[in-house]
Structures are given as C-alpha cells and as structure tokens.
Computed example of a mutant assay.
Amino acid sequence: MTTIYSNVKDDAGRIKAAVAENGAQSYRRMVWEDQGNSDTAVKAAVWIAEPGVYPYPARALEETFVVMEGEADCRIGEGEKRRIGPGTIVVVPKGATAWLEVLTSFRKFAMVVPKP
C-alpha cells in the first residue's frame, strides 16, 4: 500500500462536481481510490461548495462525510432538517436521497463505499 498524505485545504487537482439550484458550482478533489473496478471502488474525496441547495439522488453506495469548514442544513431521506458544521459526521445510507443547503463556504471530507 502506498502512503498518502493529503490536506483538505489543498485544492490542486479539483474538478467540477454538482451544480446548486442557484447555479453555484461545487468541486471535488479525489484523495484516494481503491484499485480495481471504478464502479465498485471505495473512494475518498474532498468536496468544496459555495452557498446554494445541492440535492443528491439516491445512489447504490454509502457515503460518510465529516464537515471540515462551513455550515449547511442537511436532510437525509424524509428525515428532519439538521444544521451541520465543522466536526459533524453524516452517514448517507445506500439508496437514500440527501439534500444540502450550503449556507457558507463549505468543505467536507467524504468516503464512499459501494454496496451490492
């Protein structure tokens, strides 16, 4: 296994990701990806977003993320809306929809694990 050191504040290599309902652009920077089939690989990434509403469709994977910077209102599935900020850990189960209303410049570290 290769040792990887990465800083969540490093934006080198980021690529465009989701667009918010208000047109704000978010970015993703892949930190690590398991070897093998990219459809079934475990991935670690940093996601950076400006204020806006970002809906997530249901996916065949589980995502766990830690908020590193900023605040957002978050709802998983039909659950209640919760305010999240630095240090908050969120788990989005396989097949669940999610919704983030990013309130301030936002940065999270996420791990996604595909689920058969």
Rank of each mutant, 00 (worst) to 15 (best):
W32M: 10
E33Q: 13
E101D: 15
K94V: 14
V8C: 01
E63A: 08
T88P: 03
T2H: 13
D73R: 09
V90G: 04
P93C: 08
M30A: 05
Q25R: 05
T97H: 08
R29W: 07
L103E: 13
A49V: 04
G13T: 01
G23F: 12
S26M: 02
Y56R: 14
G95C: 12
G70P: 04
P55I: 09
D11K: 14
V8N: 00
Y56W: 15
E80W: 01
E21R: 13
V67C: 06
P86R: 15
S26V: 10
A98W: 12
T64M: 02
V66Y: 01
A96H: 09
G79E: 10
T64P: 00
G36T: 13
G70E: 02
A45M: 12
K81A: 01
F65T: 12
A72L: 00
Y27K: 09
K94M: 14
N22G: 04
V102Y: 06
A18M: 12
E71G: 08
K81S: 06
E63L: 09
N22H: 01
G52Y: 00
V90E: 03
I48V: 12
A98E: 09
D34N: 10
D10Q: 05
A45W: 11
N7K: 05
V19C: 01
F109P: 01
D34Q: 15
A44Y: 02
V8I: 01
V42M: 13
E21C: 07
G85Q: 06
R75D: 01
A58T: 08
G87L: 06
T2N: 14
G85T: 10
V92F: 00
E78S: 14
A72Y: 00
T104L: 06
F109L: 15
E63W: 10
D10H: 04
K9P: 00
N7V: 00
V31L: 13
E71V: 11
I4Q: 11
V66T: 11
K81M: 11
R107K: 06
T3C: 00
C74D: 05
E69P: 00
Y54R: 04
Q35W: 02
S105G: 11
G85R: 03
Y27R: 06
W99E: 11
R29A: 06
V102E: 01
Y27E: 15
D10N: 12
N7S: 10
Y54L: 04
L100M: 15
Y56D: 12
M68C: 10
T88N: 11
V67T: 14
S38W: 02
G87P: 03
K81T: 13
A12F: 04
V8A: 03
F106W: 08
I89W: 07
G95M: 08
T88Q: 05
N7E: 07
Y54N: 03
V42D: 04
A49E: 04
M1S: 09
